[in-house]
Amino acid sequence: MDGDNAFLTAFHLILSGDPALAQIVALSLRVTLTAVLVSCLIGLPLGAALSLARFPGRGAVIVVFNALMGLPPVVAGLIVYLALSNTGPLGFLKLLFTPTAMIIAQSLLITPIIISLTRSVIDELWSEYEEQLRSLGSSALRAIPTLLWDGRFSLVTVILAGLGRAMAEVGAVLIVGGNIAGYTRTMTTAIALETAKGDLALALGLGIILLLLTLVLNAGAFLSSRIAQRQAA
């Protein structure tokens, strides 16, 4: 019964074009996509570098990043909260309870995912490419962009894994964003709030919209990667 209500609620919400909902959706997208972008800027080259580099303690670094893939969102949120809090080391930035804080927390959460999965994709590619690239005279550093570009179709999946985690995440953004109506309220924190209010139909309705959104993003990434792959093999 709640399920039926939820679908109806979701439909009504979408069709009504409610500006508050539009704002929540827009903020969710902005926060999540920016966090994914930031994480890719850091994680893709770092993951590739970790794959190519040989240094003492490399194994330990890999294990640490693998473990950080399971970093609980609440912990990530708490770390960012304490850092950005007025009395914390970065308090002077005045970023706590802002969308920027949420982006930072989500980046912290998904960068290890991008790094670890990128490393494993590039590991495989490097074993195929190493001799050829070295023969052409490519340094390991110069090989990083080559490998990232040639691994692009596998890396789309890596990025989607990060995106999925960021889209679904509530613990970290709730702590550092504060779920402020009209300012830091995202899809997931709104769902948590409506659940707390006992309005399960609305909560689930929002959940359905979030799911649809994630589905659309994934389908878009899948299709464009598929088309590009067909053209570039």
Binding site: Y129, E131, Q132, L133, S135, W149, D150, F153, A232, A233
Partner: peptide
């Protein structure tokens, strides 16, 4: 090489 590695481009 015996099996050339060509880049995906």
């Amino acid at each position: 090489f015996q099996r050339p590695v060509l880049l995906r481009r």
